[in-house]
Simulated scan of single mutants.
Amino acid sequence: MNERLRGQYLVIVSILFALILNFPLLSLFNKPILWMGIPLLYWYLFTCWLGLVGLMYWYWTRQNHE
């Protein structure tokens, strides 16, 4: 994959996660709900972070096999 597409992919992923971790969505998960003893907001943040890491890992391994 050329440098231009790689840059576009990284910009799209950055914008996606900036939107996911922005105020309107964060306020939806900022509730006094505990799941397994952990607040819902922490679960949301951890899941988003894990999704970003997984997406980047998938992209990196796909890049190395082409």
Rank of each mutant, 00 (worst) to 15 (best):
Leu28Ser: 05
Ser27Trp: 00
Tyr57Ile: 13
Leu21Val: 03
Val13Gly: 00
Cys48Gly: 10
Ile33Asp: 03
Phe46Arg: 07
Asn2Gly: 13
Glu3Trp: 04
Gly37Lys: 14
Glu3Met: 04
Ala18Cys: 07
Leu50His: 08
Ile20Pro: 00
Trp60His: 14
Leu34His: 14
Leu28Tyr: 07
Asn22Cys: 10
Leu28Gln: 10
Gln8Glu: 10
Asn30Arg: 11
Pro24Val: 02
Pro24Trp: 00
Asn2Thr: 08
Phe29Gly: 04
Phe17Trp: 06
Pro39Cys: 10
Ile20Glu: 01
Asn64Phe: 06
Ile12Asp: 04
Asn64His: 13
Ile38His: 09
Val13Ile: 09
Arg4Val: 09
Trp49Asn: 08
Pro24Met: 01
Trp60Cys: 11
Leu52Ile: 08
Leu25Asp: 05
Ile15Trp: 03
Asn30Glu: 12
Arg6Val: 04
Cys48Lys: 05
Tyr59Leu: 13
Ile20Gly: 01
Leu28Thr: 06
Ile15Pro: 02
Gly7Glu: 11
Pro39His: 03
Phe29Asp: 04
Arg62Ile: 02
His65Gly: 05
Asn30Ile: 02
Phe46Tyr: 12
His65Trp: 10
Val11Gln: 05
Ser14Ala: 15
Gln63Thr: 14
Gln63Met: 13
Gly7Val: 01
Val11Met: 09
Leu25Gln: 01
Leu19Tyr: 07
Leu16Gly: 01
Tyr44His: 03
Ile12Gly: 01
Lys31Asp: 03
Ile20Val: 13
Ile12Met: 08
Ile12Leu: 05
Tyr44Leu: 07
Phe46His: 08
Asn30Ser: 11
Trp58Phe: 15
Leu19Ser: 08
Ile38Glu: 06
Phe17Tyr: 14
Ile33Glu: 06
Glu66Arg: 12
His65Glu: 15
Gly54Met: 07
Gly54Gln: 01
Leu26Trp: 00
Tyr44Thr: 09
Leu55Ala: 13
Ile38Ala: 09
Leu52His: 06
Leu10Asn: 06
Thr47Lys: 01
Trp58Leu: 15
Arg4Thr: 12
Gly51Lys: 03
His65Asn: 13
Glu66Phe: 11
Phe46Cys: 12
Ser27Ala: 12
Met36Ala: 15
His65Phe: 07
Leu21Ser: 08
Thr61Tyr: 10
Trp49Cys: 11
Met36Ser: 14
Trp43Ser: 09
Leu34Ala: 14
Val11Thr: 10
Leu41Gly: 01
Met1Gly: 14
Met1Asp: 09
Pro32Tyr: 00
Tyr42Glu: 15
Pro24Leu: 00
Val13Thr: 10
Tyr59Thr: 11
Arg4Leu: 13
Leu45Val: 10
Thr47Arg: 03
Trp43Val: 07
Asn64Pro: 00
Thr61Ala: 08
Tyr9Leu: 06
Trp60Asp: 15
Gln8Ala: 05
Tyr9Asp: 02
Leu26Ala: 11
Arg62Gly: 03
Leu50Thr: 13
Leu21Asn: 12
Leu21Ala: 11
Gly51Leu: 14
Tyr59Val: 04
Arg6Trp: 02
Ser27Val: 08
Gly51Cys: 15
